[in-house]
Amino acid sequence: MMQAAADMPVWAAIAVAFFLLVGSGLALIGAIGFLRLPTFYERIHAPTLGTSWGIGGVMLASMIFFTVSSGRLVFHEILIGIFVTVTTPITFMLLARAALHRDRAEGNGNVPDKQNKSQIAKGVSDESESWN
């Protein structure tokens, strides 16, 4: 690190440091919120801080660092960014639907009971709610 970092101009070092700290700070705030918020549906919002600009900040820092230190354009980090941006909503949606399904089946919490039509059509084919 020392060799590459010592050759780097100060403005680039400051930019890398700024984006790195913004990204990891947002990831930390997201984790804190994930611990502190009281209900599951509120908690689901907190980690998206880490997956939106948390990832974005760290990836930008990495792109600037490797572009400046190697002297050519390096932006393959954007692949991780795109990949995480596209996949995180899928996991969160699936988990939220699973949580809604379990809460409705057990009748706990004040979850809106909406999809009665499809619930009846599906019948009583689910026996996965009993374990916690």
Binding site: H45, T48, S52, T88, M93
Partner: peptide, 10 residues
Amino acid sequence: TSTPGSAWLE
């Protein structure tokens, strides 16, 4: 969903 503060449930 990727906007913090709003989540798509179903």
